[in-house]
């Protein structure tokens, strides 16, 4: 531009108009092209695409998937999980260690010998147990799916999740917004087994210690 004299085009208004029109047309064409084929900058402003919920746990384990990724798999708190049937599936990741869809680990432990067996004791009532005994609806699959759904909601935080840290343990109490179990045990029997919408999950890291339906 330094070599062109400023007055080179000024004497010709027609040339000046043609140049202006070219600039405007070029701008329109470039804008339309970008709209049709979004480049990296346009793509980055879009929300992250949802991932299949059955891969969330594995991806979280291996690649540190964000809660944004997971949130797409579950409806907002206080509503039923959209893909409940896919949650709660287990795959063995070590010697007698199982990883759930949501990324919870079930390992050997407890008087029953395994935390999974321990949690599944909450699929049946124990009317002689002192105090309360939370019982999941839906048997084994229902219990594990509910625990997974509650964990995903708990990780999002919000009004429907209470979190308490007790040393190495994290205790989540999550309102799932619909009946997921009932109160059994001696107290449940006296109260005619009221339905409950909350789940309590006790974790050490992602290792499940216990989980059960609870009346908050």
């Amino acid at each position: 531009m330094k070599h062109i004299k400023r007055g080179a085009f000024s004497p010709n208004p027609l040339a000046k108009g043609v140049l202006l029109a070219c600039i405007v047309l070029t701008g329109i064409i470039v804008q339309r092209y970008r709209q049709e084929r979004p480049g990296p900058s346009a793509a980055s402003s879009k929300p992250i695409a949802s991932k299949p919920v059955d891969k969330a746990g594995a991806e979280a384990e291996n690649a540190g998937a964000s809660t944004t990724d997971r949130s797409s798999s579950v409806d907002a708190p206080h509503s039923a999980p959209r893909k409940l049937a896919q949650l709660g599936q287990l795959r063995e990741v070590g010697a007698d260690v199982y990883l759930s869809t949501a990324g919870l680990r079930y390992s050997p432990g407890s008087r029953e010998g395994h935390r999974l067996k321990h949690v599944l004791l909450h699929t049946k009532d124990q009317p002689g147990r002192p105090g309360s005994h939370g019982v999941f609806l839906g048997g084994r699959d229902g219990a594990l799916a509910t625990v997974d759904a509650a964990y995903l909601i708990a990780k999002q935080g919000g009004d429907h999740t209470q979190v308490e840290q007790q040393g190495v343990r994290t205790v989540y109490t999550v309102d799932l917004g619909k009946a997921i179990g009932y109160v059994g045990g001696q107290i449940g029997k006296r109260r005619e087994h009221p339905r409950v919408t909350h789940v309590r999950i006790v974790l050490e890291g992602t290792n499940v210690i216990t989980a059960f339906p609870v009346s908050p």
Binding site: R111, E112, H118, L121, Q126, R129, P130, H133, Q186
Partner: peptide, 11 residues
């Protein structure tokens, strides 16, 4: 304060 079934023992 009482005696009762522990978790799992009743089953």
């Amino acid at each position: 304060i009482g005696e009762g079934w522990a978790l799992g023992d009743e089953l």
